[in-house]
Amino acid sequence: MRSGRDSRKWSRWLSVALLCASGAAAQPQVLVVDLGDAYTRSTALAGLLADVDRELKNLSNRHRPELLALRREIAQLKKQGGDTRDRQLAAARRIEAIDAAAEQEEERLALANQAAIAKVNAQIAAIKRELAAEAGAKTVLDIQETLYLRAGCSCDYTEQLYQRLNARMPHVAMEITRAPDAGS
């Protein structure tokens, strides 16, 4: 009959063994994520893409009627002759002003887009740090940094990353700073 002390000794060793086994088997030292499909797999980025598209269409539609009218006006004035020169120049200057305003709006849109992407990237970076810490991994590599990744590798944490990203950041808003007199 073994004493309670002996029993505790070997059970402690077994505990060490089990910890050793479970720890090493469940914790790949390097994690890999594939962000190649981020614009379809991240709901925030997919939404952002749609938002940018919509803003660009709005921008185009906002200026299009006036631009068309001004171009028609210039064409008609040209047909009428030389005494319309000042009115042609005024219409041309107005077109230039609209184009310049549209360009500025596009730049503001691009900046807002970059800022929104940066927010998503910051969240991705935080999730990568969390996943690495939880798995006890040294690092999280992007699949682009690898030369080969076995299909089904336990180190592939792409699913986990998108699950967390979409739960935590289902949408990202673009904050566009609008000029008060843009295009008007």
Binding site: L14, C20, G23, A24, Y148
Partner: peptide, 28 residues
Amino acid sequence: MGFSRSSAVVIALALCDGADAEQLRILI
């Protein structure tokens, strides 16, 4: 039970070996 401390050590080492085999095999 018939486990000795040395048996437990052997089991521990065996399991640790098995666990290592589960770790990523990385080539460079």
